[in-house]
Design a protein around this nucleic acid. Structure first.
Lengths: 192, 192
DNA sequence: ATGATTTGTTGATCCAAGTCAACGATATTC
DNA sequence: GAATATCGTTGACTTGGATCAACAAATCAT
């Protein structure tokens, strides 16, 4: 198992030695998902907090009208999990599904809580929580205020890799528009 | 100064003694805002993290089109502040304005960081950050998926006090619709 | 390979909300 | 208490995106 990727990632939040990292790393186990499989589903408490090594996943919930709403896509080197739900042992309302064969590094809620007694891990957790918070707000604001065309151009600029691996109708869903509308937006943009 | 309100509030997150609380409480100072005044503005780093004792505030940002977008209203017994911005000394893009004369309890970013060395305060901070996180996601999801009428009915149910003290056009802005549309929604609902 | 499913495009129509404008009602201010 | 902002309602009109439907293209399964 190549530990470099996660080590590098964590170092972007906190300065730690390789040894400190290895102790933490021992708590993770690899999980492999086939395309289409679920890592957690609505109505249950997720088992793990996970780091994506390979693959792409979509996290969605079902709205009151019974429609799937994609909340987020996760690609390589991102964390995914329902921390609040695991801590409080409260079922999540999100579903996490692999869009490709995936390879994750997973830690249980309990192990994470214990690990958080270690100062640097606690610090990492807090930093991450705050920056997640800010990112969610920013993302939420963006979606609230932009037109479909602006949203698509933004995703084209910010996350071009997504567009190459995720079916368009999922992108449309994520942006809160119909697949037909996205198709037309793309056509309009191409003609510019 | 009546310390009961904040003490009770914090106890809903962590079990602490009155003495422990008083030590923490010493770090807060009262701030009074007149209707219309700003507690922080976009482009600067906010000075304080604040607990609302009295009054109502709106937090908004300016979108790329130059329009005000209300992100949240704050009433009594809620925390308001840009934690990420204070920690990283990075200017916020939010404005916080008093909609009524307000009374806040404020702690500086530095004092908060120091205080976070105390275990219960750190625990409180983490818990709050996680639950904020979950709340923001839920709110963002709601706004994404509901019709104006559903949104208004929800606010009517969840935060009826807001409707009594906040001008309707601010509510409309918060819901992401025009004031005329909200007026018509209200008319329709009244006729049911 | 071939049939079946998933995915993406295009056209026609509809409708909810935006826009513009006028006006009433309500607060604020001096 | 008159003058002035602010706030809320209503009407007429426009429009962007949803909806419905048909089909084309790509992918998958056996």
């Amino acid at each position: 198992m190549d530990t470099d990727i996660l080590y590098t990632h964590i170092c972007s939040y906190v300065q730690i030695s390789r040894d400190e990292f290895e102790l933490f790393f021992k708590l993770f186990k690899p999980v492999y998902l086939k395309k289409g499989e679920f890592h957690y589903i609505a109505g249950k408490v997720p088992k793990y907090w996970s780091f994506t090594l390979k693959g792409c996943l979509r996290e969605y919930w079902i709205d009151t009208g019974g429609n799937e709403k994609i909340f987020q896509f996760y690609e390589e080197n991102t964390w995914v999990g329902q921390v609040e739900s695991m801590i409080k042992q409260k079922p999540t309302d999100m579903n996490l599904q692999a869009l490709e064969d995936c390879e994750l590094l997973c830690i249980t809620g309990d192990d994470m809580c214990n690990a958080a007694k270690t100062p640097w891990i606690q610090h990492f957790t807090i930093q991450k929580s705050f920056s997640d918070n800010a990112a969610i707000i920013e993302n939420s604001n963006r979606i609230k205020s932009a037109s479909p065309e602006e949203l698509y151009l933004e995703i084209l600029k910010e996350r071009p890799s997504l567009l190459l691996r995720v079916p368009q109708h999922y992108i449309a869903n994520f942006l809160g528009i119909r697949k037909e509308t996205l198709s037309r937006v793309r056509k309009r943009i191409a003609h510019l």
